[in-house]
Design a protein around this nucleic acid. Sequence first.
DNA 1: CACCCGTGGTC
DNA 2: TGACCAAGGGT
Length: 287
Amino acid sequence: MHRPVIDWFDEHARDLPWRRPEAGPWGVMVSEFMLQQTPVNRVLPVYEQWLARWPRPADLAAEPPGEAVRAWGRLGYPRRALRLHAAACAIQERHGGEVPDDHAELLALPGVGEYTAAAVASFAFGRRHPVLDTNVRRVFARVVGGVQYPPNATTAAERRLARELLPADEPTAARWAAATMELGALVCTARTPHCARCPVTARCAWRQAGSPAHDGPPRRGQTYAGTDRQVRGKLLAVLREATAPVPQRDLDRVWDEPVQRARALDGLVADGLVEPLADGRYRLPLT
DNA sequence: CACCCGTGGTC
DNA sequence: TGACCAAGGGT
């Protein structure tokens, strides 16, 4: 199944800025942080601004973390901005300002988990690592496993399969990783897969089985309305827009339930996303 | 391992 | 219209 997928990728791969050679390892790393749970289309403009402002890890590390949170805009999960800033600081301190090419060293950086470490090593440095993101897991679940969706959490069996399917030589392995991700993103999509355009539809186990619907416990959905996350989002939006420290009363206006509002604000402070001042006002963190 | 963490588009 | 989904990580 490797040849057809890689050939398909050669013809249909999107021209994304972090795939251009000039993006470099730092560009790849920034894109991977931003793409964690955020769609490509919404990442694109923020990515361009980010790289223009902070073309090297050292440039970002030289700024207060709050500037990263502000520049993150509405990408969501703003702790990622904080972690990307912390990763830039660690790269500056531990790696002389250069993004490391070693999987273990990448994994040790803030905000870099198993997926991101493999992705950066593979896409930025051409190294050979199984890259298991939600797209690849879905492709494997269908083509190999014969089921509509992968398990809720990544299993040892999935990791073993990904390792077994990984091509032996480095350049092909990196190509394979990008190709399987792209196939999942463009063709083997979650909702309505485009099997007519799939290069491996003829040997897809799920297709051969008649595309049976997901069977088993319902996949955990995400609720949002009325949660602390929504309140945190509203509070942080006020602070992102502000150019000066914000009085408590301006934050109180975003949510009328005082207990939940206070809990959300406390959480933001605890996470380091918000800095309380001695005079009772709040701002994005300077340290 | 289950849950928490934002935001907006889609069907 | 509301549930589902999007290149996860940390605890």
